[in-house]
Design a protein around this nucleic acid. Sequence first.
DNA 1: CGTTGCATTGACCGCCCTCAATGCCGGTGG
DNA 2: CCACCGGCATTGAGGGCGGTCAATGCAACG
Lengths: 242, 242
Amino acid sequence: MTIDCANCPLRQFDLFSPISKSTLAFLSRFKTGELVAQPGTEILTEQASSSQLFTTLSGMGLRYKTTSDGDRQVVGFVLPGDFIGLQSGVMDVMQHSVEASTEMRLCVFNRSDLWTLFRSQPDLAFSLTHLAANEEHLLGEALTVLGQMDAQARIAWALLRFDRRLTAVGLRKNGRVPLPYRQQDLADALGLSLVHTNKTLARFRSRQLANWSEGWLRVPEPDTLASLYDFESSITATRPLI
Amino acid sequence: MTIDCANCPLRQFDLFSPISKSTLAFLSRFKTGELVAQPGTEILTEQASSSQLFTTLSGMGLRYKTTSDGDRQVVGFVLPGDFIGLQSGVMDVMQHSVEASTEMRLCVFNRSDLWTLFRSQPDLAFSLTHLAANEEHLLGEALTVLGQMDAQARIAWALLRFDRRLTAVGLRKNGRVPLPYRQQDLADALGLSLVHTNKTLARFRSRQLANWSEGWLRVPEPDTLASLYDFESSITATRPLI
DNA sequence: CGTTGCATTGACCGCCCTCAATGCCGGTGG
DNA sequence: CCACCGGCATTGAGGGCGGTCAATGCAACG
């Protein structure tokens, strides 16, 4: 039993830009089904082509690259609403792998329909470009964080982003959001060692600034934490949902 | 006296994917003029909107973000053939600034024509998305380098990329390519201090692996340098030129 | 009840940062 | 013509942030 795009549970959130009825109708045809991925499953593989593209309905995952010496760099976290596989769609192969951290429910699209989309739905084509530009923005910000900030600021930045984004898709409950990653994942995303990530998280916990444990993240006063590290206030521009 | 897209001096290089006559004709109309930017000029500004988009015909520049505490992160280097301003085109504002390092000649497009492009030229729309995905790829690779590699590997990676890319646009002469940046620019791109960047460059010079001085870069044996740091061989996929 | 995965904590030290001084070059004005 | 200055490259000294190594605890699982 799959969800109709017209009743997409994600579209209600202000995070996502509105969409016209006719475009929505096309999207419904574009969507060919749903896929449930179990934790640990590799959904897309670096350097491989894929005939399918996805949108995350629920659950969370990781985008990562593997270096030749076996290290891993997490280049992003896949959260509900995120589109997966655009690189494969336009460049033929993925430049990073995508793996499910929790059970994930995914909308499935056929890559072969992508060209039809570009020909007949310029607004959706525009939205796809918007999504790509948005990824570029996120990566640019991450690069700045890795290049210029120390461990405390990096972790504070990441936790704040999680808090904001997960709240925006309705996952905050009782002042906390689910964060089902391992400390190693965060370490690999921020260019830190597991040990140092752990110690820094412990410091935030004892200072009551942020508490991430047992899969839940609680940030009592996001603005206080942000001001401590000079992060600009949470400007949440809307983005497309495809 | 501006260059007609049909005679674009860049399009001859294998780096760029071929394009149909009719698409080329549209491009010629899309291009509204040329702009010459002097060294030091800010072409686009972070957090600002721009009514114009550009393609680099010649010259080089920098993309960078400024952090609230005054630091600078170089998120990319603008080389001939690079498109500038896509973020502003689809997301309304730029997420990084672009500044000319040398004198630059730029093709100028009107942002207001972008929508027409998406409606009437799906192949160009696809190419734009391709370019955005390509930027995402570059940033992901940069993130991996900053997150996982030490100073020597970071600098080797950057120098190899310059060597390959500048060669691909015909700028290699007498076994060297022009590299008109300051050491500070590279340091800010790689998340290193100027001092350490300088010392590491000196080490490469004395080991005869790479010599960057007085605006020119000479890498005698790129493959040797690449193998020293476990970089995959130079896979140069083609990309669109708009 | 051994094993496996993840979180936690302590000891040690190295890469790279900061601070600081010097040299070189081109531009500018007295 | 020369003194001065600003921008950039270079080099040495010293120290700190965050790295690796290693051991322990704990919970889930076969």
